[in-house]
Simulated scan of single mutants.
Amino acid sequence: MNDQDLLRYSRQIMLPQVGIEGQQSLLDATMLLIGVGGLGSPSALYLAAAGVGHIIIADFDKVELSNLQRQVIHHTPDIGQYKTDSAKAKMLAINPDIKVTTLTDLSKENLNSWVAKADVVLDGTDNFATRFKINAACVQEKVTLVSAAVIRFEGQLSVFKGYEADQPCYQCLYSKEGEDNENCTENGILAPVAGFMGTLQALQAIKVVLDLGEQLSGKLMIIDALKLDFRTLTISKDAHCPICQAKSESNQTS
C-alpha cells in the first residue's frame, strides 16, 4: 500500500481486527456480485469504498425509472444504460484504484468459470432458478456464497459453504418448489429495507475475507423491518440434498 491507500483506508486500518494486513487482504480479494439491483447497489458501493481490489459485477438488465426508488447506485440520467455500466461508473468514482469487471452475459455455460475466479460470491438476484444455479456453482467451485433476499418489509441473510462436509448449501434451505412470484415486482418493497440488507450482505462478505466475527455460516438471519425484529435460525445440512451431498460424497471417494 502507498501513502494514498493508507490515508483512504485509515479508518479501517485503525481497527485492530483489520489493520494493514487485513486491508491488504481486501485489496487482494476478488468478489463476484451477481445482480446490481436493490441488494447489489449498496453492496457494490460499500465493497468499492472498503477497498475490495477486484469486483466483478454481473447483470443483464438496463436501468428503468421504477428501479430508482431502491437501486441507489443508479441515477435518473442512467435510465436506458446497462446496470453494470452505471454501477461501474459510480464505484470507480468512489474508488478509482480498484478493478471493476462487468458482465452482461453471465449464463449457465460460463457461470462456473466466473465463480471460480472469486473468493466470495454475493447473490443479489430475485428468483429461485438463478439462485439455485449460483449455489450449485459455488458448491462445485468451493467458493463461499453470501445470499440475501428482500421483499416488502422483510429480509433474509445467510452465508453458505456447502462444499464443506458439515455445512449446508442454499438448496438445503429451499427446495426446487420455491415460489418465483415472491419478488418485489409482484409484492413491493420499502426502499431502505433493500439498502439495509445489501449493506449487511457486503459486511458479511468482508467478514468472510477477513475471517471476522459471526459470519452466519449455517445460519439464517430473518429481519422484520416493520417490527424491527431480528431472528437467527440454524440451518442443517440436508442428508438428501442433490447439490452439496453429492459434492461431499465425491470428495470422500476422490
Rank of each mutant, 00 (worst) to 15 (best):
P42K: 10
P42E: 11
S43W: 01
A44H: 08
L45I: 11
L47D: 07
A48M: 02
A49R: 08
A49I: 06
G51T: 09
G51V: 04
G51Y: 02
G51H: 04
V52M: 06
V52C: 03
G53V: 11
H54Q: 13
H54M: 04
H54C: 11
I55R: 07
I55L: 15
I55K: 06
I56W: 04
I57K: 09
D59G: 03
F60P: 14
D61W: 11
D61H: 12
V63S: 06
V63A: 04
V63E: 08
E64Q: 14
L65A: 10
N67A: 05
N67E: 11
R70C: 03
Q71G: 08
I73Y: 01
I73V: 14
I73G: 00
H74E: 09
H74G: 02
T76R: 12
T76C: 11
P77A: 07
I79F: 09
I79G: 02
G80Q: 01
G80I: 00
G80R: 06
Q81R: 15
K83M: 01
T84D: 07
D85H: 14
D85M: 09
S86E: 10
S86M: 10
A87C: 04
A89C: 05
A89N: 13
A89Y: 15
A89H: 15
L92A: 03
A93H: 15
I94P: 03
N95D: 07
N95P: 05
P96T: 06
P96Y: 06
P96K: 07
D97W: 10
D97A: 14
I98Y: 03
K99E: 14
K99H: 15
K99C: 09
V100E: 04
T102C: 14
L103F: 10
L103D: 04
L103R: 11
T104Q: 15
T104R: 13
T104D: 06
D105C: 00
D105T: 08
D105G: 03
L106W: 01
L106S: 01
S107Y: 03
K108C: 01
E109Q: 11
L111N: 02
N112L: 09
N112K: 15
N112S: 14
S113H: 12
V115L: 01
A116F: 03
A118N: 10
V121G: 10
L122S: 08
L122D: 10
D123A: 02
D123M: 01
G124N: 13
G124Q: 12
G124C: 14
T125I: 10
T125V: 13
T125D: 05
